[in-house]
């Protein structure tokens, strides 16, 4: 693969982010990213999207109160 276009890069962005591309393809992608600010921005926001999804879930768990007492009681009751 001598060069890639935006459509090719974005189509395989998940593999790029997961570092699943072979070395030659990755280098080609890296070269495209050097010359294409739009794809650089897309890549950054794609990674930020994943981070936001995880971050929001983490924050929700941090802020979560204990399970509702009625649920705890219901579960214990089912067992009895």
């Amino acid at each position: 693969m001598s060069h890639v276009t935006c459509i090719e890069l974005i189509s395989f962005l998940d593999a790029y982010v997961a570092e699943e591309l072979d070395a030659e393809t990755r280098t080609t992608f890296d070269l495209h990213l050097i010359v294409c600010p739009s794809c650089r921005a897309y890549l950054a926001s794609y990674e930020e999207t994943i981070d936001l999804v995880r971050g929001v879930a983490e924050k929700e768990e941090e802020l979560a109160h204990d399970a509702p007492p009625e649920l705890i009681e219901a579960v214990k009751h089912v067992k009895r």
């Binding site: 276009t5 935006c6 090719e8 794809c39 921005a41």
Partner: peptide, 13 residues
């Protein structure tokens, strides 16, 4: 994407 493979609308950070 456009026919030449570029993004129709440029992405910004």
């Amino acid at each position: 994407f456009q026919a030449d493979g570029h993004q129709q609308q440029s992405s910004v950070g």
